[in-house]
């Protein structure tokens, strides 16, 4: 082979391999290609009831709440923290929505109340982590285990036998559409843009990554680590409540026991698939969204595959392991060493 040509190839390949973005995107592409084989009309997109309709839209549609929660999780993980209570925050926000709708409040006020509840949950977690210095995994575990109980107590305020409701505003945000596009995708994009502006166009993102990278050093540099961590948990709580509004309005009912069950794990997974490290110090917003899309694409493919549901979790676990292996530098190094070793 010509040496020059080889060099060009290598730099191109290396740059590609060096890019964090390539592996999750590759995983997403592989999943979508496999889907095309499973179901021939997988890529069809039609217009039904005035909105775009198809498997690809479904993936975006269903990934939106997880992606919103994962964005908040990415911020908290950036501070070297973790928030296990996002599912409970969603349950509380949902219970408040159903309760106040039964009480007859204005639906716009109810939206603000639900978001306020998310902020309150964030303040509580932030107080425990930044104020009292409790380990994040323990601090947020408290709300994780108690939050769904709080949601059930709220349901009891109005009898709690049938917490279903109708709301044009909230359901508009969740299952409605503007022109042809589902509103929740627009809401998700708006949240993404707002978060990106706050983190990248102010110093907040830098501060969070500094605190996550090395709290002591950033304190010496004049960053108030406590306030930064506190803010991160509030952002996470607020975003979880946004997802809570979408999920609760989606099912027209408050179900604190099972709504968004294990979403904290999917959110953490999305952050990790997106290249984030639980050691903190880095926030990758765009890649986190890709991570959420990978998870949802996988879920959707399992649903349409016709495989017995007993296999769902095993397949999910295998694909996740595969994606994480692709991302692991050590594993990649192992393979490139093997490839580089001259054959005897």
């Amino acid at each position: 082979m010509v040496t020059e040509r080889k060099n060009i190839d290598e730099t191109w390949l290396n740059r590609l391999k060096g890019s964090r973005a390539i592996w999750p995107l590759l995983a997403l592409a592989v999943i979508l290609i496999v889907d095309g084989f499973i179901s021939p009309n997988f890529y069809d997109i039609r217009i039904v009831e005035g909105r775009l309709f198809g498997n690809l839209i479904d993936i975006l549609y269903r990934a939106t709440p997880t992606a919103i929660v994962a964005l908040g999780m990415a911020v908290v993980i950036g501070t070297k923290g973790i928030d296990l209570s996002v599912g409970s925050t969603i349950a509380i926000a949902g219970a408040i929505i159903a309760w106040r709708i039964h009480a007859g409040d204005s639906h716009f006020a109810i939206l603000l109340m639900a978001l306020g509840a998310g902020i309150a949950c964030g303040v509580w977690n932030g107080f425990l982590v930044a104020g009292l210095g409790i380990q994040p995994i323990i601090a947020t575990l408290i709300l994780m285990v108690s939050g769904r109980g709080i949601g059930m107590l709220i349901n009891l305020f109005y009898g709690g036998t049938d917490p279903s409701f109708e709301s044009a505003l909230l359901q508009g945000l969740s299952t409605g559409h503007i022109w042809l596009i589902p509103t929740r995708i627009i809401v998700g994009l708006a949240i993404f843009a707002a978060l990106w502006l706050v983190l990248r166009k102010t110093a907040l993102g830098l501060f969070i990554e500094a605190v996550g990278g090395n709290a002591a050093a950033s304190s010496l540099a004049g960053v108030n680590a406590r306030i930064i961590i506190f803010v991160a948990y509030i952002v996470c709580g607020l975003l979880a409540a946004c997802a809570g509004v979408i999920l609760t309005a989606d099912t027209h009912t408050s179900d604190p026991v099972s709504v968004a069950l294990y979403i904290e794990l999917d959110a953490i997974l999305a952050v990790v698939i997106g290249g984030g490290s639980l050691a903190g110090g880095r926030i990758y917003l765009g890649m986190t969204v890709i991570g959420a899309l990978v998870i949802q694409a996988l879920t959707t493919s399992i649903l349409i595959s016709g495989l017995p549901p007993e296999y769902n979790l095993i397949i999910k676990a295998l694909v996740v392991v595969f994606v994480l292996l692709l991302q692991s530098k050590n594993v990649r190094a192992l393979f490139s060493k093997k490839a580089a070793r001259p054959s005897p």
Binding site: N55, D58, T251, T253, S258, T299, P309
Partner: peptide, 22 residues
């Protein structure tokens, strides 16, 4: 077609959405 919706409204809705497409 058969899938698990985990006994929840959310789960039933997601599974039926996928069934409608498939």
């Amino acid at each position: 077609a058969t899938q698990s919706g985990d006994f929840t409204t959310e789960g039933g809705k997601k599974v039926m959405e996928a069934f409608i497409k498939s």
